[in-house]
Design a protein around this nucleic acid. Sequence first.
DNA 1: AAATCGGGGAA
DNA 2: TTCCCAGATTT
Length: 346
Amino acid sequence: MKFSKTLINWYLENKRDLPWRSEKDAYYIWLSEIILQQTRIEQGKPYYLKFVDRFPSVFDLAAASEEEVLKLWQGLGYYSRARNLHASAKYIVNELKGIFPETYKDLLQLKGVGDYTASAIASICYEEPVAVVDGNVYRVLSRIFGISTPINSTEGIKEFKILAQKLLDKTNPSDFNQGLMEFGALQCKPQLPECPTCPFSGNCIAYKEQRIAQLPIKLRKQKIRKRHFNYLVFISEDKETLLKQRKGKGIWQGLYEFPLVETSGETSFENLVKEEEYQSYSTSENTSVALFNELPVVHKLSHQHIFTRFWIVNCRELPQGGVPLEKINEFPVPVLIDKFIESYCF
DNA sequence: AAATCGGGGAA
DNA sequence: TTCCCAGATTT
């Protein structure tokens, strides 16, 4: 039987019931696709429900502040997705009169929408015959067709896209694309795939040659950078603290955190404030400093390990821009900061 | 072409 | 621990 026919039959029998499934409105599909980038369904699902509830239309999303969008995104990671989502919503409302782009080519113009997401929206919402290639698709195709080209090489990216496009059922792109991904997620799993019950096992090259565990092939392992963060948690007598918004290039852009002193290693409070601008009000009289955690909290990102110490600085008053402690939960913060706030209980 | 950007779940 | 997740963007 034809590949696409077998696949779609499997999909119609096995597909999960998900909140965005059978949805055709591009706004909702777009929302779900951005949320699910590099994110497991089970992790993204509650966020999707929150966003749909708070922003039922692209107009609601466009009218919100970036801070509110980031607050709703808090904990999901890759925060540029939230900022791009918000920017694109404003672009759609202001430049396109709220009408969503309807082709792969036009969808690509949206910030945060690349080849995968444009293909997903175009095929699911408009039945445009463009194949999606996500992590699931790489795995399924590399195994069934026995392809050893590294999936994160320029060659591989091109080769798998062409193959998926060739296999695509042009009369039913939506079910084909979703079926291929669903098949990878449920049947052709990374570990211990369900080969005995697989409808393709008879034609699967990796299965025949016992290379299931070796495919797909992925190159390079990024080395992890170690960093040392010292957060100054000011607490004034009128129960205020200081928060600063992260700007510029690195991690957590747009999120808030306590005043940060990054050092090359563990350090003392004296060394901490010596070179920083906080000494004006952190070393004056009537202040007391206490190291909250002797053992650094290790916050692990996929590309860096952050060794963190929190320093509690009780002081009489803060210069300006203090945040009342009861309002601290209104700010979008990294998980690292949120966990501290939860554990400290001001 | 390679680096960067989060956080969590599973083995 | 290690790998991976409905990837995109910057360097």
